[in-house]
Design a binder for these strands. Structure first.
Lengths: 233, 233
DNA sequence: CGGACTTTGCGAGCATGTTCCGAAAGTATC
DNA sequence: GATACTTTCGGAACATGCTCGCAAAGTCCG
């Protein structure tokens, strides 16, 4: 009945590789063959271990990507944010958005439960900035968390939809098969959409994230102010 | 040099199955084995055709799921929405959110480029309701589209993150391996987050979508009004 | 050392989405 | 009916994420 090692706190066969080595191997792989080649088998090969051994160090690919994400977040520049609460919130949200947009695996991992929690200290300051801004503006901690989370949802949606559409446009469109295509709009049922017509695609492609965040923050802060007024008197 | 058939407008070997048959087969499969078993091979088996033949009728699985989505959207109830523009927008957004939340494949297809365009007439009325509401409130068509799209991003983010977290909680958590765990928050760097502490998870799990949409719509409409005022005088 | 125990290494194998390519089955023209 | 052409069919095969189960390699205790 062996008790855990006094020094290492562990027992049994020592692992041949570590999470740190996995990270450097992944970085090599990315530099050499691009981020698309970061696959379980390729990474194991790079480490010189068996394909399935990696699963002793990483729960699944999502876990692996979150590891890479932490590293990525740690190396991001840390711009100084405005001190005025509202502008601080907006600037932080934009920073987050831009970082996520530039990250190749956003579409795979962004909706992960606990994504925020795995950011690590190096990127949590952005979350802190938003929550702190909300509180400084007079929000309760509860509302501050909700404000952050609502902005998070908006940001996630924006990043994911845009990521998907740019990925799609990379593919060469194959010759069409039996495809019904888009149904023509019926002006009697959807008059406004019909009137907008082809402009829809153009307008929907425009990047108005900054405006959108501003509007959202304004709305949320106003809501908080109104609630505070109602509660007080 | 055969020219296309005068009647059918086609030539060559006629297909053994159609998109309509694919849909009924998928429905059978869902009823019998659940939505998780809707796989390319299983569906082909149900149709009595070879596994890879399905790719003659459907570009890829995404395409297939969008097909199922159209059918799902068509059978949704069509509640009457409030006539007041702002409330109309909000109610439509909530309806969309609820429908997406209940749809099993939302996480797979929701970020698809052109998702909106493939809704079909049966669900486009909800999009129309939002755009029309914005225009009725005084927005330009451009801003109305942007308003819809911003709400769409928010909704997509909300649905996806929630879908992921509920999926995760279904899995039995395996015994931890070498996992560093979450780093404890450093109160000197993230004081507000540290103060919120464990309440974060509780607060973040609360459903405040309705409040959020209301705040967002208020913010966006106010922005539009301000812009209109600036332009006018 | 020897045995009990614990943890890791890894080959085999499964499911799924997807592509390739040759064979099959139609249609139109002669 | 024969021929040219077009389209579909489908088995083989590939990549990838992942699980299973057993063997190997350590550590602790006597």
């Amino acid at each position: 009945m062996p008790s855990p090692n006094a020094k290492t706190g562990r027992t049994g066969r020592p692992p041949v590789t570590s999470r740190a080595e996995i990270l450097t191997a992944a970085r090599k792989l990315i530099d050499r063959h691009g981020w698309e080649k970061v696959t379980i088998r390729a990474l194991a090969g790079e480490l010189g271990i068996g394909g399935t051994t990696l699963y002793r160090h990483v729960r699944d690919k999502e876990d692996l990507l979150l590891l890479l994400m932490s590293e990525y977040a740690a190396q991001l520049p840390q711009p100084t944010l405005p001190s005025e609460p509202r502008e601080r919130i907006i600037a932080a949200a934009i920073t987050i958005r831009d970082a996520l947009t530039a990250w190749p695996w956003a579409a795979d991992v962004l909706t992960t439960d606990g994504f925020i929690g795995r950011l690590g200290d190096s990127a949590l300051w952005l979350v802190e900035a938003i929550v702190a801004g909300a509180i400084d503006h007079g929000c309760s901690p509860e509302r501050a968390v909700h404000l952050f989370r609502d902005l998070w949802y908006y940001t996630v949606g924006e990043v994911l939809v845009r990521a998907h559409s740019s990925r799609k446009h990379e593919k060469v469109e194959r010759p069409a098969f039996t495809d019904p295509g888009l149904v023509d709009l019926d002006p009697s049922r959807t008059p406004h959409l019909a009137a907008i017509g082809g402009r829809w695609a153009v307008l929907a492609a425009q990047d108005t994230y900054v405006q959108g965040v501003r509007a959202f923050v304004d709305g949320l802060l106003a809501q908080a102010t109104a609630e505070a007024r109602d509660t007080t008197g």
